[in-house]
Nucleic acid binder design. Structure first.
Length: 466
DNA sequence: TGAAATGTTGGGGCG
DNA sequence: ACGCCCCAACATTTC
């Protein structure tokens, strides 16, 4: 019987998996293989590693139920796959194409030595198919999204996993998955959980998404990003479903919410496309005129930001949510990022690195794109003078202060105006609420009004000297 | 996917 | 009744 390998990387699912389908488990002996690559895993953030390993366990269970077995190997993918092809006589290796720079180098090398078949699936539309006349890529979101929407969608989705696999030969060795040190309790891994969340989001939140998505104190977002990052959920299936809602709903509110959410998914597609076409953004700013910039070098301020001790409640709440859960509300990401870059004037790449170390959904394309956007150095970036006021952002998107109280417990007793501006507490009030400024909660590490002027001046001079 | 500064308007208090 | 001023509310411009 013809034997092929399904090389699993960021597509940890059986439902609607294009690479798996191309491997054809109904017609051939498909060997599901995951290679623990030390180049990737040794520097992977602990939380993402735990999420990945747990996801592999779930996938192994799912495969067992389909009569198969997950083969896990450890080492360089090229070596391990070469060995597997020799051991099994596999005629082809099917795998989902990954657009990140390391993955592309790895796969190019593998393709020179092995019968590698790359199958699209990481994004709904391949970055090469959303391009301008003449084939040049878009660098501005709105025209990108227009072109994206004008494309005809890929083939229909498989809503069920393949029922039956040929079992791999029993003597084929597989290493144990490493033990996971502390799972991510807010995000149980696996396709089943991902599907449950998708259905819950469609049932209860998508219709209000446009109204609630920016509210830090509400659960208005889908929280699907970790699952999409590792392909525990098919982006194709997700987008199919949301398009069905947009076209099928008689309710204009639901339609609006679904359209707004789809737009966010298109941002994901956009940043994957940017990374694909401009891989250098991993290392430097997209805009060459802002690559040399007078960033401040303050280890102390950076630490205060990382651990939620800036003295600005909404920033600290967001940073502590990240530290505690591995996830941060999107509005929080923008506020915290703006604060690091504009108020502290610290290099956006420091923030990018910290987010990647902490986020369970950390994704090179999306995280890098978001940071470059905030810093105003990327494609279609926020203008340099767009500086978030952390107090106003807090009052607007956490109107009752509940998000702050949840993540910054020392501010929990404070009533409304003070929870956003604790530095305004008089000595008497500090006494009453058990909040001692400079002791239980820090004074602001910068004055926002002054920091704003400083940032404007720095960006002005960088523009002038470029 | 901002915010602050500046400009404009119009209602009301008041001499 | 009238004109003047104040200022809130809104609009526009600027960073």
């Amino acid at each position: 019987m013809n034997t092929v390998i399904w090389w699993i990387r960021r597509d940890l699912r059986l439902i609607d998996n294009a690479a798996l389908k191309a491997a054809d488990p109904q017609g051939r002996l498909v060997l599901p293989v995951f290679v623990l690559d030390p180049v990737l895993l040794d520097k992977e953030a602990p939380r993402r590693k735990a999420f990945l390993i747990e996801g592999l366990r779930r996938l192994a269970d799912d495969l067992r139920h389909c009569g198969s077995r997950l083969i896990v190997r450890s080492g360089s993918p090229l070596d391990e796959l070469t060995r597997l092809v020799q051991e099994t006589g596999a005629s082809a290796i099917y795998t989902e194409e990954d657009y990140s720079p390391y993955a592309r180098r790895r796969d190019e090398t593998a393709a020179r030595h092995l019968p590698l078949r790359l199958v699209a699936g990481l994004t709904f539309h391949h970055p090469l198919s959303v391009v301008k006349q003449g084939g040049t890529p878009y660098t501005v979101f709105t025209p990108f999204s227009k072109a994206w929407k004008a494309l005809s969608p890929p083939a229909a989705v498989d809503e069920l996993p393949p029922h039956f696999f040929q079992p791999p030969p029993p003597d084929l060795t597989s290493v144990n998955l490493p033990p996971t040190e502390g799972s991510v309790k807010e995000f149980p891994a696996g396709g089943e959980e991902a599907s449950r969340r998708l259905e819950r989001f469609f049932r209860s939140s998508v219709g209000k998404y446009h109204l609630q998505r920016d509210r830090l104190d509400l659960d208005g977002t889908s929280q699907l990003s970790p699952y999409l990052h590792f392909g525990m959920l098919s982006i194709r299936r997700v987008i199919w479903r949301v398009q069905q809602i947009i076209q099928g709903t008689p309710n204009p509110q639901v339609k609006k919410g679904a359209e707004t959410w789809l737009n966010e998914l298109i941002w994901r597609e956009f940043y994957h496309s940017i990374l694909y076409h401009f891989p250098f953004v991993q290392k430097e700013a997209f805009r060459s005129d802002l690559r040399r910039f007078p960033w401040r070098d303050s280890a102390l301020d950076l630490e205060a930001w990382k651990y939620g001790r800036t003295g600005y409640p909404v920033v600290d709440a967001a940073m502590r949510q990240l530290l505690a859960t591995g996830w941060m509300h999107n509005r929080g990401r923008m506020i915290a990022a703006s604060f690091l870059v504009k108020d502290l004037l610290i290099n956006w790449q420091e923030g990018e690195r910290w987010f990647m170390q902490q986020l369970v959904d950390g994704d090179l394309a999306a995280n890098n794109g978001g940071w470059q956007w905030t810093a105003g150095v990327g494609t279609d970036a926020a203008p340099y003078f767009r500086i978030f006021n952390p107090i106003l952002q807090g009052m607007k998107f956490d109107p009752e202060g509940d998000y702050i109280r949840r993540w910054v417990p020392e501010l929990a007793p404070l009533p409304l105006p003070y929870v956003h501006e604790p530095w305004r507490l008089t000595a008497d009030l500090q006494q009453r609420y058990g909040c001692r400024l400079g002791v239980t909660y820090p004074y602001p590490i910068v004055d926002h009004a002054a920091a704003r002027e400083r940032a404007l001046a720095a960006y002005q001079s960088a523009r002038n000297s470029a």
